[in-house]
Amino acid sequence: MFEVLEHAADVGFRARAASLREVFESAAEALVALAMETESIEARESYPLKAAGDSPESLLVNWLSEVLYYLDGRRLALGRFTVSELAPDCVRGTALGEPRDPSRHPALLVVKGVTYHQLKIEPQAGGWIAEVFLDV
């Protein structure tokens, strides 16, 4: 679950989930939803994702940068994300999706990068939130 946040030049999102692990999953889904139409993404293949970091913030930025690489570098359309391991210095998981077909997955935005600008990842109201701004 996520909502879009405003920024004068770019765009951000606030993702919410019940656990820290799930907020990583929701944030990845938010990134994809801002980048492309997600309705017709089919879960044909599973793609492994991993990122390193030295804080929850850097783990989140590097995790989302990993997702962005799969979207823009590997040209994939990714749907459901599952985080299988979340350690203080590493996050691992998978994404279900398929090779990107621009006719079925029209692009919405080119996301250039994931930023640390006003980045938040913190417990709130019985769950976790992540706020992330993207350079577009």
């Binding site: 030295d54 962005l68 690489y69 823009d72 990068g113 994931v114």
Partner: peptide
């Protein structure tokens, strides 16, 4: 394009350490 975006991402990730 994506090449420059990824260069920035790669080096930002290294800069913390």
């Amino acid at each position: 394009r994506g090449l420059g975006h990824q260069v920035c991402t790669d080096y930002l990730a290294q800069m913390g350490a």
